[in-house]
Amino acid sequence: MNDPFYIGYLDKNPPTLARHTQGIVLLLAVIVIGLTALLAARQTPVEPGDFEFGVRRTFTGVILESPLPLLRSVSTNGAVTHYLLVGSGKYGLPAFARGNTGKLVRFDGSLIQKGGSVMVELNAPESFKVLGPATEVELTQKQERITDVVLTGELVDTKCYFGVMRPATGKVHRACAVRCLSGGIPPGILVRDHDGGAMAVPLTGSNNQPLKVDPEWAARIVTAKGHLILSGGLLRLEVLELSLDR
């Protein structure tokens, strides 16, 4: 009956009540540490990928807009790299770079990289310079049609997946992927091997055209049937048929 009475506007809690309150605070601290550690530890590990946000490099090469916006860059030792090109934010190739297919250009941008996949965000319009028409050699694209495949996997936007967002897949990222696809960022299909390794293969349409895809299919599982093509180290799927699975 003589248990202590708490009055919040007084300066002190009665001693026995204070001890109980200290016990509660300690218990809460243990619960907080335990639960936050457990919740953090059970997350799906984030895949590699890097976005050099705020860092600008200079890129030189030939622009090809279709079926994927690319910069075909030849190094001094003759190695060819195909950089996928996107704009700032959730947009594809920006207007200032369009209409230059087949021209040798130079511009500054930020590198996005995941494994062997490389992409450049064109975020410095003032740096964009057309140096002249590309030479015959520079225009020659060696394309290798590897095989015909049917791939099933999550439809992703390549910009986020190649390293801008980590993680960049699943329901929580879905709205972002919708915006990116709607803004013209090339779609990709996320495929996994049996060891858990994953890669997003950029999707293109047939007849050298970009693939038209419903942005609301983003982050859903789709099946794509088509030709797997390799050129300049960049693998892409020329889609003949695309369907929504679930």
């Binding site: 959730k90 947009y91 709205a175 972002c176 915006r179 990116c180 709607s182 803004g183």
Partner: peptide, 9 residues
């Protein structure tokens, strides 16, 4: 900001 901004909507 992260998922919806800087886009076409």
């Amino acid at each position: 900001f992260q998922f919806h901004a800087l886009g076409d909507e």
